[in-house]
C-alpha cells in the first residue's frame, strides 16, 4: 500500500516535470510569402501539427498542402495542381531537433533563440536544413516561431518559363505554434 502511494506520487511528480515534458499543437500556423516583380503570393494554413520533446529537443512538424488558403482561388488551384502536385504529395513534414536544447530553461519564463536542424520534405523531396528559431515560455505555455527561406528549385518545383516573372525563386516560410502539454 505504502509502495503504491509512493509510486503514484513519483509518477505524478514525473508528469509535472516540465523538463521531461512533451508538447504538441494541432493549430500551428504556417504561412508563406513571395514577391516577384509582377506578383505577390501569400497563403496561410492554420492546422499544422507539431510535437516537441523537451528532454531530447526532438521536434516534428507536418502540414497538409491542400489546407493552404490563398486570397486568389486561381492561385490556390495552380499552387496545388501545377506546382505542389498536392494529390501526389499531400503533406509536407519537418523532422529534426533543437541543436542546443539546454539553452531553453523549460521551467522558467523567458525568450530563447535556438537553432533547429533536420529534414524538410516538400513536394516529395527531402533536404537537410538548419534554421534559427525562437521559443518563448510564459506562465507554463510554450510558443515557437521560425522564419526561413527555401529555394523552390531545391524541391523540384518547376516554374514554366511563361510565368517565371510572376513567381519568385525563393519563398519565405513562417511557422508559429502555441504548444500545449501533451497528456
Amino acid at each position: 500500500m505504502r509502495f503504491g502511494i509512493l509510486l503514484l506520487l513519483t509518477l505524478s511528480l514525473l508528469s509535472t516535470d516540465l523538463v521531461a515534458q512533451k508538447w504538441f499543437t494541432r493549430d500551428g500556423k504556417i504561412s508563406f510569402f513571395s514577391e516577384a516583380p509582377l506578383e505577390k503570393i501569400e497563403a496561410e494554413n492554420s492546422s499544422g501539427t507539431s510535437v516537441l520533446d523537451a528532454e531530447s529537443g526532438r521536434i516534428e512538424f507536418a502540414v497538409l498542402i491542400k489546407g493552404f488558403q490563398f486570397e486568389s482561388a486561381l492561385m490556390q488551384e495552380h499552387f496545388n495542381e501545377n506546382y505542389m502536385d498536392s494529390d501526389k504529395f499531400p503533406k509536407s513534414t519537418f523532422k529534426g531537433y533543437i541543436e542546443d536544447p539546454e539553452t531553453i530553461l523549460w521551467d522558467q519564463d523567458g525568450e530563447y533563440e535556438v537553432s533547429v536542424k533536420g529534414d524538410l520534405t516538400i513536394h516529395g523531396v527531402t533536404k537537410e536544413v538548419s534554421v534559427p528559431a525562437s521559443f518563448s515560455m510564459k506562465e507554463g505555455s510554450l510558443s515557437g516561431n521560425c522564419t526561413f527561406v527555401v529555394a523552390v528549385a531545391d524541391y523540384d518545383i518547376k516554374i514554366p518559363k511563361l510565368v517565371r516573372e510572376n513567381i519568385a525563386k525563393e519563398v519565405e516560410i513562417s511557422v508559429q505554434s502555441d504548444y500545449k502539454i501533451f497528456q
Partner: peptide
C-alpha cells in the same frame, strides 16, 4: 467542408 487530408486529425477546411 473541404477535406484536405489527415495528420493527427482528419482536417476539413472552410
Amino acid at each position: 467542408g473541404l477535406c484536405t487530408g489527415k495528420l493527427l486529425d482528419v482536417v476539413l477546411v472552410r
